[in-house]
């Protein structure tokens, strides 16, 4: 599969969050502003690419019986590295994402891709898969956070531009998260049906 085609699949037709509907927790929890959304998306993408590469490298060494434990250990290692690096160099992002950074470990997208793709394919292919799936996840987060920030805080770009001053705060509360995701997935289902 060409890179362009995989990219289309990752971003759109096979988007991990909006179509496969996995990795919903961070999608709902961290999309209260676009800065958080992008930060979360890129952190998860970095972990996904690294873990995909390492797992593809080790796919012939890791015994089948203990593969899940081995995958989780490797993923947890990369997540901790990202966590420490963020704390050291981007402390504001680390503070606002908080608990959800270590929780990347249990993001189903990462373990899912390790199990379904990286453990069966070459290093190159797995790296590409990591990039497109990660970008698909990031894309979904950005979409969510733009809608929620605009409606819920009345701003665009992490408070950079104020559009209106009487926002519907409910949109950045948990209820608004579920509502936005529901509507986006509905639109997605409509578009995909049209495309068929």
């Amino acid at each position: 599969m060409s890179f362009g085609k995989s990219l289309k699949a990752g971003l759109f037709t096979d988007n991990p969050t909006l179509v496969q509907m996995i990795g919903l927790c961070p999608t709902l929890a961290t999309t209260t502003s676009i800065v958080n959304g992008i930060g979360m998306g890129l952190s998860a993408t970095a972990v996904l690419i690294c873990s995909n590469i390492v797992i593809a490298l080790l796919r012939k060494i890791i015994p089948n019986k203990v593969r899940i434990a081995a995958f989780i250990t490797i993923i947890a290692g990369f997540v901790t590295m990202i966590d420490l690096l963020l704390q050291a160099f981007i402390p504001s992002l680390s503070a606002s994402l908080g608990l959800y950074i270590p929780l990347i470990v249990v993001n189903c997208i990462i373990l899912g891709r390790a199990e379904a793709f990286a453990s069966k394919n070459t290093v190159g292919q797995s790296a590409v898969d990591g990039i497109v799936m990660g970008l698909g996840f990031t894309f979904a987060l950005i979409l969510m956070s733009i809608v929620r920030e605009l409606l819920g805080a009345g701003t665009i770009g992490g408070g950079a531009v104020t559009i209106f001053s009487q926002p519907a705060t409910i949109m950045i509360l948990p209820a608004g998260g579920f509502l936005t995701l529901g509507c986006i997935i509905a639109v997605m289902q409509k578009l995909l049906k049209k495309g068929e």
Partner: peptide, 20 residues
């Protein structure tokens, strides 16, 4: 287009609002 997960998410949203 709302059938399945989307409408479930919207119900969850209403539940979250109630829990608020």
């Amino acid at each position: 287009c709302f059938e399945g997960v989307p409408i479930a998410l919207i119900s969850a949203s209403l539940m979250a609002m109630a829990f608020l």
